[in-house]
Amino acid sequence: MNNSNLLHWSFDYNYGAQNPQFAQELIETLRGYNPKVGARDIQTAQTITHIYNVLPNYWCGYNRGGNTETLSIGRVIIQRSKHDNLWHYSVKYENTTSGENLQMQFCCSDEDYRPLRDNWSVDARNSANDEYSQVACAGYLTSDSEVRLRINGAEIAAGTVDASVKLTCNWALFDVIPTLARTIQASGDGIDIAVLEDLEQLRRKSRLGFLESTQTPIPLEGYYLYGVGLLPSYWWLDAHGNIAIASTFFETLVLREKTGDSL
């Protein structure tokens, strides 16, 4: 692993946090996982779990309480298993700055784009000392490709998916990008995809394209995603088929652990 602090600009936020250093934390986190566990053939696995460390991109101030031991402000656990030709996802997102923790359940067809299927759910819980403590959201896609959400029993429309694109969840992109990597690279301008962010916000048409490669801190291939209502995010794929780094606008997810129970 290359210890250089010269990280790619898309995930170089070292200046914003002098102590602990962003680069050091990122590199240390990546050291923690064994990339070969689970191998890249996730098609044969029963359950694959990726755990990501959440680092704040801007200012030490977004680290709860100015903790100087670690920069981390949370973690993401993405667990998926394959049954009956469907991928079943369970995603846990914890953020100690917002205080909100999300538990998301959804399933996708066993296709490259991982299209969303059937019903999904989001259980949001607030750990901050406020009146809001919990809200439950259930969603489904109608036959007319309209996204419907039920929040505490009230049902609302969340937009209609364009017929020309497939709808997936942003958390399934951790599998979509490795699977479609070569297709995306070959496409030149990238491919279009609809994203249901955190299973609630529909980004109707987003562009997924190849950015470039880097060797720091490990060999990585970069991809970008942006669209209406969606700031560019950058997804970095390692040589073993894992998204090792995903830098959204405000946070950088760094792979810290991977398990695969079938291997």
Binding site: S98, G99, N126, A128, D130, Y132, V135, Q201
Partner: peptide, 26 residues
């Protein structure tokens, strides 16, 4: 209803706005 685990200061929409919507929905 909601003011953040780390009290909301100047910025941080990516952390707070969706949680604010959840709080209002609730």
């Amino acid at each position: 209803l909601y003011y953040g685990q780390r009290d909301i200061g100047a910025g941080g929409a990516a952390y707070y706005d969706s949680a604010s919507t959840h709080a209002v929905a609730d």
